[in-house]
Amino acid sequence: MLTLTCPCCGITADETELHPGGEAHLKRVGPGSSAEAFETYLFARSNPKGVHFERWRHAYGCGKWFLAARCTATLEVFGTYLAQNAAPPPEILAAIRARRPDWTPTAIAPRDPEPAERPNE
């Protein structure tokens, strides 16, 4: 069973209280992108065995989206962080490296200069 700590309200929630939101840190391409690039943005998802960054929503709690870093093979959770982060924060990366020394981050969108405005969640 997966339990994640919501960074917005600090509650440790069971998987059944959360709603999964798929891969985190996707960056929208375009406008004006090629059809292939947009298709990749829409449909291509990494499916790693190991460290993965995911979006989750605390649906039965505070209702906020947040991000989590976990291992897809062991369900080990390395940490959760606010959805306003465009890339995993340093403490999360450090926590992952402490447990997975041979892990190298791949295909994480570069940090935006300004976090994108988020409409009401």
Partner: peptide, 22 residues
């Protein structure tokens, strides 16, 4: 509810689910 009620402080409030409803 899957929430840990014993960890809730005296003046706390817990949002969770009761079986299938919030």
């Amino acid at each position: 509810t899957p929430a840990n009620l014993s960890a809730m402080p005296q003046d706390g409030m817990l949002r969770s689910r009761a079986a299938q409803v919030a």
